[in-house]
Simulated scan of single mutants.
Amino acid sequence: MADYRAGKAGINAEAQARINSKYNNDIAHETLEWIKRITGQPENTAGDADNLYEVLKDGTLLCNLVNKFQDGSVKKINQSTMAFKCMENINAFLETVKKLGVPPQETFQTIDLWEKQNLYSVVICLQSLGRKAGTYGLPSIGPKEADRNVREFSEDQLKAGQNVISLQYGTNKGQQSGISFGNRRQI
């Protein structure tokens, strides 16, 4: 994290506090335990934000994790601790999880992890990846992903549905009290 920056103040500090309040140590611990089951790392699976950041900040563990899903999905994992090399690792992880089926709205931005801006979104991304793990023969975490429920309607059913008045148009059941149209205001 960039220690040379001044702390946030005012509305920015409030927004950051709101983001940080979403973080859950128990879910982060569960996520790190899941990563350890698959990759054998990290040694420390404490769920506090500082530990999660220290374990994941260089992106190498994240790249190793997605390589367990598909061999060689991240071809070059940078071992350097230089900022741009670590951020390349994180970005390679993010591109791979999208290809593995994690919805884009459940991913995070590189800066969220690198500058410790939004570790909650990092955990959400890993949990979403954990739901996909079962389809790749790996242990999964979190709630089971829903199956598709495709419905087929006949032409008669579709035509019958066109005659139904949607509740968005209101209802003709009863009358609202106190409303009458056409009366003049008495002065």
Score class of each variant (00 low, 15 high):
residue 43 E to I: 04
residue 45 T to D: 03
residue 47 G to Y: 05
residue 47 G to R: 12
residue 48 D to M: 00
residue 49 A to H: 10
residue 50 D to F: 04
residue 51 N to T: 15
residue 53 Y to N: 02
residue 56 L to C: 04
residue 56 L to S: 08
residue 57 K to G: 06
residue 59 G to T: 11
residue 62 L to D: 00
residue 62 L to S: 03
residue 69 F to C: 00
residue 69 F to P: 01
residue 69 F to H: 06
residue 71 D to H: 06
residue 71 D to E: 14
residue 73 S to H: 03
residue 75 K to F: 10
residue 77 I to R: 05
residue 77 I to D: 01
residue 78 N to T: 02
residue 81 T to W: 03
residue 83 A to E: 12
residue 84 F to T: 05
residue 88 E to H: 09
residue 88 E to N: 08
residue 88 E to C: 03
residue 89 N to D: 07
residue 93 F to I: 09
residue 94 L to V: 08
residue 95 E to G: 02
residue 96 T to K: 11
residue 99 K to G: 07
residue 101 G to C: 00
residue 102 V to E: 07
residue 102 V to Q: 09
residue 102 V to L: 03
residue 103 P to N: 11
residue 105 Q to H: 15
residue 106 E to F: 12
residue 106 E to R: 15
residue 106 E to T: 08
residue 106 E to S: 14
residue 106 E to Y: 13
residue 107 T to S: 06
residue 109 Q to G: 13
residue 111 I to V: 13
residue 115 E to S: 10
residue 122 V to T: 06
residue 127 Q to S: 06
residue 129 L to V: 01
residue 129 L to G: 03
residue 133 A to D: 06
residue 139 P to A: 12
residue 140 S to C: 11
residue 141 I to G: 04
residue 141 I to R: 01
residue 141 I to P: 02
residue 141 I to M: 12
residue 142 G to N: 02
residue 144 K to S: 09
residue 146 A to R: 09
residue 147 D to E: 11
residue 147 D to V: 04
residue 149 N to S: 11
residue 149 N to C: 04
residue 150 V to K: 12
residue 152 E to H: 09
residue 154 S to F: 07
residue 155 E to C: 01
residue 156 D to M: 04
residue 157 Q to S: 12
residue 158 L to S: 11
residue 159 K to Q: 15
residue 159 K to F: 13
residue 163 N to A: 15
residue 163 N to K: 15
residue 164 V to F: 10
residue 164 V to W: 14
residue 166 S to D: 12
residue 173 K to C: 03
residue 174 G to K: 04
residue 174 G to I: 03
residue 175 Q to P: 01
residue 176 Q to P: 13
residue 178 G to Y: 00
residue 178 G to W: 11
residue 178 G to P: 08
residue 179 I to K: 15
residue 179 I to M: 14
